[in-house]
C-alpha cells in the first residue's frame, strides 16, 4: 500500500515540478525578494522586521499560488482528462489514490518552498550584512519555525483542495471553495475575537444567530491564523512550544480527518 501511495506521489510530484507555471511563481517570489532589498533602506530601524515580513509573505503567497493553481490543476487534470481511468485500472484503492495525490502535492510544495527558502535565506543574510545594526530582534530559529508553519498551513490548504476535488466535478468550483475556505479560515479568528470583545463591552451585541453560525464555521474551517507566526518571526518573539505543539497537532488532525472523509466520498464517485 505504501509503495503504491509513494509511486503515485512521485508521479504527481514530477508532473507538478515540471509544470511551467512553477517558474512563474518562482519569478514572482524572487521579484518580491528583490523588492525587499530595494525597499529595506526606506525604513528607519526595524529593517529586520520588514525583511522577515517580506520574506515570509513571499514564501506564503507563493505557496498560495502553488496550491490554488498547480495543486488544483494536478487534481483536476486527472479527472477532466480521464487520466484517473489509467490510475484506477491499476490496483489502487480510491483511498490510496487520495493519499497518493495528497503526498504528491506536499512534495511539490516542499520542493518549491525549499528552493524559495534558499533564496530567502540569501536575501535575509545579505540585508543583514548591509544593515547589521538593525537586526537585534532577529532569530533564525524563529524564522525557520515560522517557515515550517507556513508550510503546514499550505499542507492544510492542500488537504482542502483534495477534499473539494474529490466531491466536485469542476476545477473552478474547487478553486472557489478552497479560496473561500482560506479567506474564511484566515480571518475567522479576528472576527470572532472582535465580536467577543464587543460583546464584553456591550457596545454592539452581535445577534446570537451570528455567533452560533461563526461557532459552527470555526469547527468546519481550520483556523489558519493559528499557523501564522509572521509577527513572532519578524520580531524574534519568544515561542511558546506547547502552543506550537497544539497548533501542529490541530493541523495534522484536521488534515487526516478531511482526507479520510475525502476518500470516503471518493469511493462512491463515478468517473465517466
Amino acid at each position: 500500500m505504501m509503495q503504491r501511495v509513494w509511486a503515485l506521489a512521485l508521479v504527481t510530484c514530477k508532473e507538478g515540478i515540471r509544470d511551467r507555471s512553477l517558474y512563474g511563481i518562482f519569478l514572482f517570489a524572487l521579484f518580491v525578494l528583490g523588492l525587499n532589498i530595494a525597499v529595506a533602506g526606506f525604513f528607519m530601524r526595524d529593517l529586520g522586521k520588514v525583511t522577515v515580513d517580506m520574506n515570509l509573505a513571499a514564501l506564503s503567497f507563493a505557496g498560495l499560488l502553488l496550491v490554488f493553481f498547480i495543486a488544483i490543476n494536478l487534481m483536476a487534470k486527472d479527472i477532466d482528462k480521464k487520466t484517473i481511468h489509467l490510475v484506477l485500472s491499476k490496483p489502487f484503492s480510491r483511498g490510496e489514490y487520495i493519499w497518493g495525490k495528497y503526498v504528491g502535492l506536499l512534495l511539490v510544495i516542499l520542493f518549491a518552498q525549499a528552493v524559495l527558502l534558499l533564496f530567502s535565506c540569501a536575501t535575509i543574510a545579505s540585508v543583514h550584512a548591509m544593515y547589521p545594526n538593525y537586526f537585534a530582534g532577529f532569530s533564525w530559529l524563529v524564522f525557520f519555525v515560522a517557515v515550517f508553519f507556513v508550510y503546514l498551513q499550505q499542507a492544510l490548504l492542500c488537504a482542502i483542495v483534495v477534499f473539494f476535488s474529490a466531491i466536485t466535478s469542476t476545477s473552478f468550483i474547487t478553486l472557489i471553495f478552497s479560496m473561500a475556505s482560506y479567506i474564511v479560515g484566515i480571518s475567522l479568528e479576528e472576527v470572532v475575537f472582535y465580536l467577543r470583545s464587543q460583546a464584553a463591552t456591550q457596545e454592539v451585541v452581535a445577534s446570537a444567530a451570528l455567533q452560533r453560525t461563526l461557532e459552527v464555521v470555526s469547527w468546519l474551517v481550520p483556523n489558519f491564523a493559528a499557523f501564522d507566526l509572521k509577527l513572532e518571526a519578524a520580531h524574534g518573539l519568544a515561542l511558546d512550544w506547547t502552543r506550537l505543539g497544539v497548533t501542529c497537532g490541530y493541523g495534522v488532525m484536521y488534515i487526516v480527518i478531511l482526507l479520510l472523509l475525502a476518500s470516503l466520498i471518493f469511493k462512491r464517485r463515478e468517473f465517466n
Binding site: 522577515v52 515580513d53 517580506m54 480571518s187 479576528e190 472576527v191 472582535y194 509572521k230 509577527l231
Partner: peptide, 16 residues
C-alpha cells in the same frame, strides 16, 4: 481582517 494573514506586511506598507 482584510490583511488575510499579511498583517505585518500591511503595516509596513501603511508605514511607507
Amino acid at each position: 481582517v482584510l490583511a488575510c494573514g499579511y498583517k505585518g506586511l500591511l503595516a509596513d506598507y501603511q508605514f511607507l
